[in-house]
Design a binder for these strands. Structure first.
Lengths: 149, 149
DNA sequence: TTAGTTGCAAAGGCTTTGCACGCGC
DNA sequence: GCGCGTGCAAAGCCTTTGCAACTAA
């Protein structure tokens, strides 16, 4: 399979997902391929450089569509605006810097079903585990924390 | 140690935490001792039954103070208003019903540092792990899900 | 007394909604 | 041409902030 450039890859993803292929969606996917863990506003700013007419609200719509289609993953760390990333399969979680808000991926140490030895809690059926680690990123460890969180 | 009633226990907690003892704070703690995993609005409604002059904003202030003092724990499941509970020590997480929003406590199966075999990810220093499980509560398993999430 | 809290009102940040226009298929 | 997406504007939701009046210590 030859994919010549980023946009072609994005278009292919959209087609696979059965989504209509629009400029906005292609550019949003392109942006997320370049920068990860960014919020809707940041996505919008990047999109605006290539598609100046696309509003923040449209970016929200698009991100919502892409998330539903499973092309994009939405992370919602407590107290922060939602962040988006292109998902690369699953079973990775995130660590967020309590000082500057930087985010990094974390492959869960335990494996495919983290913290889930029993499959059932209080009669609940467990479907997903959302795991967010909080700590200090390397930069903030040196500078001393300012705790945004 | 004789604690005659709920309010006395709440007052004792406030004193221990070095917080000023006000009616609002006592009642909020009382409410949280009775009902757990409720949002600020629900707390406010319960408080209003005993202290009608206390506004929602004041409840927010109070919850924020109590959270900072460590008397109360704030849970922020993705896409829901923040929930509060009186903390009973730590190391328990939560499972939220994707259909009706019900919340239950989960003692993490792995122990004190769930999913944390290494203590360091990408140079980050890990301080806390926020873990939220999503699934269906017993009621919604029978009724069929309506997925709020 | 006096520093810490409350009550009220207003604003803030992020996200969702509604509706007419326009574009992908 | 039909129907889904977009653009724009406005509202929604929860929460925070500002400030004067009050009250616990």
């Amino acid at each position: 399979m030859f994919v010549v450039n980023r946009s072609e890859a994005s278009k292919a993803l959209l087609r696979q997902a059965g989504l209509r292929l629009t400029p906005g969606r292609v550019v949003v996917l392109d942006v997320l391929a370049e920068v990860s863990h960014i919020d809707a506003l940041t996505v919008s700013e990047h999109v605006a450089q290539r598609l100046p007419t696309t509003s923040l609200q449209s970016v929200h719509n698009i991100l919502s569509d892409l998330t539903q289609a499973g092309l994009v993953h939405k992370i919602e760390p407590a107290g922060m605006p939602a962040l988006y990333e292109r998902r690369v399969g699953d079973n990775h979680h995130h660590i967020v810097c309590t000082s500057c808000g930087a985010v990094a991926d974390v492959d869960c140490a335990v494996g495919s079903a983290p913290c889930l030895t029993p499959n059932d809690f209080h009669g609940f059926t467990v479907q997903v585990a959302d795991i967010v680690f909080w700590g200090l990123c390397p930069d903030c460890q040196q500078l001393g924390p300012t705790n945004i969180h």
